[in-house]
C-alpha cells in the first residue's frame, strides 16, 4: 500500500492546491516498509500533484482542504482521499495505515 501525505513542515498542509512538499510511504502487507521519503514539488499546483499521485500509484492521499473537482478526479482514479485532516503528518500516516483515519479528523 502506498500513502501520500501533503506537507507543511511536519504538519499536514492545509491546502492541497498550495502544497509544495509531500511525504510518500510504502508498506508491505505486514505493515513494514522502507523509510518514507519526502518529495519537493516544483511549485504549488493541484494538477501536477494529481499527476504525481497517479504516476506513483498512490492508494491513499491524506490532505487538508481539497477542491471537489480534484477530489472527484482522484476517487474516479481509484485513489482514496482522506481530506480536511489537521495534525502531524507522521501520526496521520500511522492512523491511515491502521485504517483509523477519517475525513475531518483533528489529530
Amino acid at each position: 500500500m502506498k500513502i501520500l501525505v501533503t506537507l507543511t513542515a511536519d504538519q499536514i498542509a492545509p491546502r492541497f492546491d498550495l502544497c509544495t512538499e509531500v511525504l510518500i510511504a510504502q508498506f508491505n502487507d505486514d505493515r513494514t516498509g522502507p523509510e518514507p521519503r519526502t518529495v519537493l514539488l516544483p511549485g504549488p499546483s493541484a494538477d501536477e500533484l494529481c499527476s504525481l499521485i497517479l504516476k506513483e500509484g498512490i492508494d491513499i492521499v491524506v490532505c487538508g482542504g481539497i477542491e471537489d473537482s480534484f477530489f472527484q478526479y482522484l476517487i474516479w482514479k481509484k485513489v482514496r482521499v482522506i481530506d480536511r485532516v489537521i495534525g502531524p503528518s507522521a501520526k496521520a500516516l500511522q492512523l491511515a495505515l491502521e485504517e483509523g483515519l477519517r475525513a475531518g479528523a483533528v489529530i
Binding site: 492545509p14 487538508g64 475531518g104 483533528v106
Partner: peptide
C-alpha cells in the same frame, strides 16, 4: 466543518484553509 472545541489552540490557517 470543525467545532470550536475541536480546533481550539490550533493555528488558524490549518482550520480556515
Amino acid at each position: 466543518g470543525y467545532s470550536t472545541q475541536a480546533v481550539q489552540g490550533i493555528e488558524c490557517n490549518y482550520v480556515l484553509r
